[in-house]
């Protein structure tokens, strides 16, 4: 997933005033009188960014709603309520009305949230592991391995992600698991590039040279000295990755190529709106799911923006 959906690939500049106030950069000499650990300083900067807090609250609310879905609605998501009937407008029993198959929309939005969240986090976790390993291998071994991995990365990035994912999900058959695995197996290039780029920069830094000089083994340098320094930018990429993955899953499901009905997903709830009747006369069928997707992605993007500004803004730019 290119990070172009969000502008994280290029660090937007931090306000100049803010820049001067930064207590510490990563590994930079201490400029403020009192001692603050880099992590705590980053945390402080994160919480100074108000939108990030808003995002955190929004995302927590969505996570809790998905987690406690059974407590928030009496209806199971696939329950067909014959007594109410299909396409009923919202009332006391069905707070958001019923869909074309007489199922409760509110329940489907809640349970659809589970799908989106599982896919979003699952796929990103998978490709973070793959991307980090490949990036470490490329940056560590260099030469031929580096060339091979980077050309492979270029190749995957040359093909529009949605198209590639559509094709491979179709090949393995659409389901939640295959959506996670396919996004996970094809989404790693950005991570791999970032890790490799950071490694190349770190390799030149003095504390790594110092570690080499005192005879620390290469593997320990890689895992104990370099990897922890990459975790910051990696978190930023992961956050924006979740936003992209949620959008991808909803697009796939909307097209009928991802999570298929009766399994609820925000994307496939909106599929019905392709019919003009649903679009205009039954807004309760698709508007809630649309709001849910936008809110989630917006929340994650806010958090990502905050994290990026909190963690050395120049660090993400090098990638």
């Amino acid at each position: 997933m290119t990070q172009l959906n969000d502008p994280s690939a290029l660090a937007t500049s931090l306000p100049e005033g803010e820049m001067a106030k930064l207590p510490v950069g990563l590994g930079a000499p201490q400029v403020v009188g009192y001692q603050v650990s880099p992590r705590r300083a980053a945390l402080r900067r994160f919480f100074r960014y108000r939108l990030a807090i808003v995002g955190l609250i929004m995302l927590s609310a969505i996570l809790l709603m998905a987690l406690f879905a059974p407590l928030l609605t009496p209806w199971p998501p696939n329950w067909v309520d014959f007594s109410t009937g299909a396409r009923q407008p919202p009332d006391a029993a069905h707070v958001l009305g019923t869909d074309v198959s007489a199922r409760d929309i509110w329940a489907r939005v809640l349970y659809g949230g589970r799908t989106s969240i599982i896919v979003g986090f699952g796929a990103v976790a998978l490709y973070l592991i793959i991307g980090t390993l490949l990036g470490l291998a490329a940056g560590y071994y260099g030469r031929f391995v580096d060339q091979a991995i980077m050309r492979f990365t270029d190749t995957i990035m040359a093909i529009p992600p949605l198209l590639l994912i559509i094709v491979f999900v179709a090949v393995v058959g659409p389901s939640i698991a295959s959506v996670i695995v396919v996004i996970g197996l094809l989404g790693w290039p950005v991570t791999a590039r970032l890790v490799r780029g950071q490694l190349l920069v770190l390799r030149e830094s003095e504390f790594i040279t110092a570690a080499h000089v005192v005879g620390v083994p290469d593997r320990t340098i890689l895992l104990r000295h370099m990897l922890p320094n990459i975790l910051g930018p990696l978190t930023v990429v992961a956050t924006f990755g979740v936003a992209t993955a949620v959008l991808l899953e909803s697009s796939l499901s909307f097209l009928g190529l991802g999570v298929r009905p009766p399994e609820a997903s925000w994307g496939n709830l909106i599929t019905e709106a392709v019919s003009p009747v649903v679009l205009t006369r039954l807004p309760w069928q698709w508007v809630p799911a649309a709001i849910a997707i936008t809110t989630t992605v917006l929340a994650v993007n806010f958090i990502g923006d905050g994290l990026r500004d909190a963690i050395d803004p120049r660090a993400t730019k090098r990638a």
Binding site: I270, A290, I293, T294, N301, F302
Partner: peptide, 13 residues
Amino acid sequence: IFLASTPVFVLAL
């Protein structure tokens, strides 16, 4: 930011 967070298909609809 809002537009970047909204799926294309919702905007199209």
